[in-house]
Amino acid sequence: MTDLEDAGGVKGATASRAAAPSSTPHDWPLWEVFVRGRRGLDHTHVGSLHAPDAQLALRNARDVYTRRQEGVSIWVVRASDITATSPQERDPFFDPAADKVYRHPTFYTVPAEAKHL
């Protein structure tokens, strides 16, 4: 996973990859797994696994995450292809929404007798 601010974790992963001989599981990229529980629902992140390619990642995800029919569709995405916000930056990053309470319907006073608003 690429972190916007702090890529420490990913750096560690790169180092271990370089040290391990190829074609062992240590060399396999990490895949994030998303499962659609049933039709009509969004895919939801359920976890991750290592696999040498997308095909095997999907098949292994099926075996690991949908053994009990937990899903009807699976997405796998290379963890290194995901860019994420950093926990340290959370507050300043999301702050701009904090003082805009008027985006919520409860901000407005509506007379009690007005229905369906």
Binding site: G40, D42, Y102, R103, H104, P105, F107, Y108, T109, V110, A114, L117
Partner: peptide, 21 residues
């Protein structure tokens, strides 16, 4: 389309209320 509409409807109710106000 259905999922987009869930988000939109949630946000629309502020729109209608501010107009009423």
């Amino acid at each position: 389309y259905a999922r987009a509409m869930v988000r939109i409807c949630k946000e629309e109710s502020f729109h209608q209320r501010q107009g009423f106000e």
